[in-house]
């Protein structure tokens, strides 16, 4: 039933309300307070988490790859700094490298760009979110975490416009609340949650990949 509906999207570009959703990827944007927040969130996801996770953490241009190594050591999932032409694999976390934007290509690869700063940042959350939304559409989960700027809000709006799901860290729970607040102000957010509940929520959403509980049908949109 669900598959049939998924195979026949409406011609106006919106998703049918009752269609089951099968998520393909998670994107996360985070700035000030990010090292702590990412350790906490990724630390609670099991090695069996089935979706790829793409992350932009604002970082200074001349930083080394220390953050990816740190997260890789402390989290069950494999964490790596994104290399150009990396194939996007399930259950792997990709971190945007310092001084490059991270983008998603249609063929399921990652690409990098040295284009000018967007939203005063490189890597920019907006760039990742917008390119991921173009590829994954309603199969994308976008998350905005703690940060002291506005990057990510335009990108989250695009994710919503293309049918994806938007999750924002509860500003009261965030080390810096501006980025979550800007995201909430920019678009209709699906979930506003504290960091502690986020891993459980992601696992619940990801589990819909194969089995769609009857009572959850139609609640996505």
């Amino acid at each position: 039933m669900a598959e049939t509906l998924d195979a026949n999207p409406r011609q106006d570009g919106t998703a049918p309300k009752t269609a089951a959703r099968s998520f393909e990827a998670v994107t996360i944007g985070v700035s000030t307070g990010g090292v702590h927040a990412l350790q906490k969130l990724l630390g609670q996801l099991p090695a069996t988490f089935p979706l790829p996770i793409l992350i932009v953490q604002h970082i200074s241009a001349d930083a080394d790859s220390g953050l990816a190594k740190l997260l890789d050591e402390r989290c069950p999932l494999r964490v790596k700094e994104a290399d150009e032409q990396d194939e996007i694999r399930p259950g792997t976390v990709y971190l945007a490298p310092p001084n490059y934007h991270l983008l998603v290509e249609r063929e399921g690869f990652l690409s990098l760009s040295a284009d000018p700063y967007v939203s005063f940042a490189r890597p920019s959350v907006d760039v990742l979110f917008e390119s991921a939304a173009a590829v994954f559409g309603r199969g994308l989960i976008g998350i905005v975490l703690t940060g002291a700027n506005f990057d990510g809000s335009q990108g989250l709006k695009t994710i919503k416009r293309k049918g994806g799901v938007a999750i924002v860290q509860d500003p009261a729970d965030a080390e810096a609340r501006q980025m979550p607040q800007a995201a909430i102000a920019a678009t209709g957010v699906d979930y506003v949650v504290a960091l502690d509940g986020m891993a459980a929520l992601l696992q619940k959403l990801a589990a819909r990949r194969n089995t769609i509980p009857h009572d959850e049908k139609g609640r996505d949109d």
Binding site: L103, V104, E105, R106, S111, S113, D115, V127, E130, S131, A134, V135
Partner: peptide, 9 residues
């Protein structure tokens, strides 16, 4: 040219 970047530009 890779799609994502050229599309942005």
């Amino acid at each position: 040219y890779a799609d994502a970047s050229i599309k942005r530009r």
